[in-house]
Design a protein around this nucleic acid. Structure first.
Length: 676
DNA sequence: AGACCGACTAACAATAAGCT
DNA sequence: AGCTTATTGTTAGTCGGTCT
């Protein structure tokens, strides 16, 4: 599109330079797009020198006005966010934007997939049907669509038959005491010999008697089978005319009692005590819709029409009511009673030529259960790289990102990713929302986008962000980015400016943003508590020494150990080391949660540790003493070990890990106290 | 209470391998 | 070559637990 636009405005070809790592020369092309055939045309080709080791460069010259420069910059910046693997640079006469690569990791390769049955449009379907090599509908579906195997294809074809041919209404076989099918068939067959005719009629009757309900095609099949059998046995030919007559006669017998048959069905469907007369009336009127000579094939829509008319009439005449629910139940009962026709579906070619048939097939495809499409056709940026992308563009204190698992809307898989940058150089105002679709920034129509709607709908106060009025965009030094990757992103319009409000996508966007926001929340909470701690500590640090001094002056005793006291007041973990012949390490936990510090000491001589709580490892004449106690709130734990007397006073120091630096006070002064 | 998540199983499509 | 069969991978569905 860019090439075409450049060509239209400036008339100059696109200049392309490309070089692979292995080749020592680059290839240079000039390319124009033939607007008639929409095919590229290479107008010049030559080998050339290029200073880059590998890559592709496209140069386009185009005319445009630069009034929307701000948005161009924004576009470039946003592009840099979602393409952390790329180096993005913009040179203009007065500005120069440059974003370096944040990672050398290329986006995961995507796999091409065939379209999903739920995702195609009628036009596409017809086009596919025209181009396929398959003859049968089943083969076409299995070959051209993803997630369609034998089972799914069968269910689609079944649905298609229902829509294309309708179903064949079936009736119960005549009861035994009624004049059965046999006499009617015998009557219909002439000049075939009494014995053969009787046998023929009996066979047909037996065959039909086996099934619960009989549709027209059952009768046809029974007559065919009986005809063939009798033909070989008796040597008399049962031609097409005879068979037709026999089918007609048998069918007439089968359909003779439509009314009582329908009565039973309607009665079964209407559980509530409907008026008997009303049901009878409905059955009568419905029975009248099925012509005696007809095959009784109805589509779902036609059946509904019949039922509606019959029900309306019954309401008028018999003063009964048939509500929507009742009608629906009866309709489903009748539809269930009707038999799926055995006709083969038309060939794919025929479907391609007939729009109505194709539309019926599409309906069947939409209605069928098809498992979700595979998701490896999408390449998410991944949460780490979203973070990296944000870091590369925004100078903030905190970054969070979340990538959702793939989900499906219609037939198209999609992945939603969200990222949040907070603090740092970001301005304190309504948070920016960056929207992306398939790694392309969406600049316009901010308000019409599903992304914005979702973010406005989130209660940001839960996540420690200000939100005036409790809804709408949050305020604060924050940037929220949302990326939707899909094989078919549903845009609100052709201009691809905003993502449409598809419930599935909105839901995923919300979950993704919330996921990232939760991280932000814990960060903000921690930061706040840290600030409070620091304020408290600052105050104490000014007061305590003065108090200690006063106290010392009043009591006349030596100076107090302020550090330890401060630690106790602040709820810190206090680690003390005393050396008096043996070394004694004490962990005192003044916090209100369990502390699990890991203490390591390195000494120059082999220590003797009495408990199993600590492990000693020797390495290059140094001994590592590792001790990882769990200390409950308000408790203290102690480790004592001996060093050989000739080891001298330890230059050993204790290092502590697993405790937040802010909450840790290490006190080794007593070492000097005791050795003094 | 409801949504979400992970572990597990069953079902099914996709693919490779084998067979007629 | 075309069909059937085994294998593999993916997904839907279910259950129980956890979090908000």
């Amino acid at each position: 599109a860019a090439v075409l636009y450049a060509q239209l405005t400036s008339g100059k070809p696109a200049k392309i330079t490309s070089r692979t790592q292995s080749s020592d020369q680059a290839q240079y092309f000039e390319l124009i797009v033939d607007t008639d055939t929409n095919e590229p045309e290479i107008s010049a080709e030559q080998a050339t020198e290029w200073d880059r080791p590998h890559g592709t460069r496209i140069e386009l010259e185009m005319e445009a006005n630069m009034r929307a420069r701000q948005q161009l910059h924004e576009y470039i910046r946003n592009t840099a966010v979602v393409n952390p693997h790329a180096r993005v640079e913009l040179r203009e006469p007065e500005t120069h934007l440059k974003y370096a690569r944040a990672t050398d990791q290329l986006p995961a390769e995507t796999e091409e997939i065939r379209p999903h049955p739920h995702g195609v449009e009628l036009g596409t379907l017809i086009k596919m049907a025209e181009e396929t090599d398959s003859y049968s509908v089943s083969g076409f579906l299995q070959g051209e669509f993803t997630r369609v195997g034998q089972k799914t294809a069968e269910s689609i074809v079944d649905g298609f038959r229902d829509r294309h041919y309708g179903r064949a209404m079936s009736w119960r076989p005549p009861a035994d005491h009624d004049p059965g099918v046999a006499p009617a068939v015998e009557e219909a067959v002439a000049n075939k010999g009494a014995e053969a005719t009787a046998d023929f009629a009996e066979r047909v009757t037996d065959q039909l008697g086996e099934s619960e309900r009989i549709a027209h095609h059952h009768v046809e099949a029974a007559v065919e089978a009986a005809g063939d059998a009798v033909q070989t046995e008796y040597g008399t030919t049962f031609g097409a005319t005879v068979r037709e007559n026999a089918v007609a006669a048998a069918w007439e017998r089968v359909t003779a009692e439509r009314e009582s048959d329908l009565y039973v069905l309607i009665d079964a469907a209407t559980t509530t005590r409907k008026d008997d007369a009303a049901i009878q009336g409905l059955a009568e009127r419905l029975a009248a819709k099925f012509d005696p000579g007809d095959r009784h094939r109805v589509t779902h829509g036609r059946l509904q029409e019949y039922l509606d008319r019959a029900a309306d009439m019954t309401e008028d005449r018999d003063d009964a009511t048939f509500g929507d629910t009742a009608r629906e139940n009866v309709l489903e009962e009748l539809w269930g009673a009707a038999d799926r026709v055995p006709d083969d579906p038309p060939q794919v070619r025929a479907i391609a030529e007939d729009r109505d048939t194709a539309s019926e097939l599409l309906e069947a495809m939409r209605a069928a259960d098809v498992i979700a499409p595979p998701t490896n056709c999408l390449a998410p940026i991944t949460d780490e790289l979203v973070e990296a992308g944000l870091q590369k563009v925004y100078d903030a204190d905190f970054y969070a990102a979340a990538t959702r698992d793939a989900a499906v809307h219609g037939g198209d898989p999609f992945i939603v990713e969200a990222g949040i940058a907070y603090g740092g150089e970001l301005e304190e105002r309504t948070a920016d929302v960056l929207r992306f679709a398939n790694r392309v920034p969406l600049v316009y129509q901010r308000g019409a986008c599903a992304t914005t709607d979702v973010i406005k709908g989130i209660g940001w106060r839960n996540y420690e962000l200000d939100q005036p009025g409790g809804s709408g965009l949050p305020t604060g030094p924050a940037v929220v980015m949302v990326h939707v990757a899909s094989t078919n992103v549903p845009f609100t319009s052709e201009s691809k400016d905003a993502i449409a409000n598809v419930p599935e996508i909105e839901h995923e966007i919300e979950l993704a943003v919330r996921e990232a926001a939760r991280e932000l929340k814990s960060y903000l909470k921690e930061r706040r508590s840290r600030q409070q701690r620091r304020q408290k500590q600052d105050k104490l640090a000014t007061i305590l020494p003065a108090m200690a001094e006063k106290l010392a002056a009043v009591t006349g005793r030596g100076e107090l150990d302020i550090d330890a006291t401060l630690g106790r007041i602040m709820g810190d973990v206090l680690v003390t080391r005393e050396q008096n012949g043996s070394v004694r390490l004490t962990v005192e936990n003044n916090a209100d949660t369990n502390a699990e510090p890991e203490l390591t000491e390195i000494v120059a001589a082999e220590p003797t540790v009495e408990t199993d709580a600590a492990t000693v490892v020797e390495m290059d004449d140094e001994w590592f003493i590792r001790w990882a106690p769990t200390v409950g709130p308000g408790e203290r734990a102690t480790l004592t070990y001996d060093l050989p007397t000739d080891a001298g006073d330890g230059a050993a120091t204790v290092s502590v890990e697993g405790i937040d630096e802010q909450q840790l006070t290490i006190d080794t002064e007593r070492e000097t106290d005791t050795t003094r």
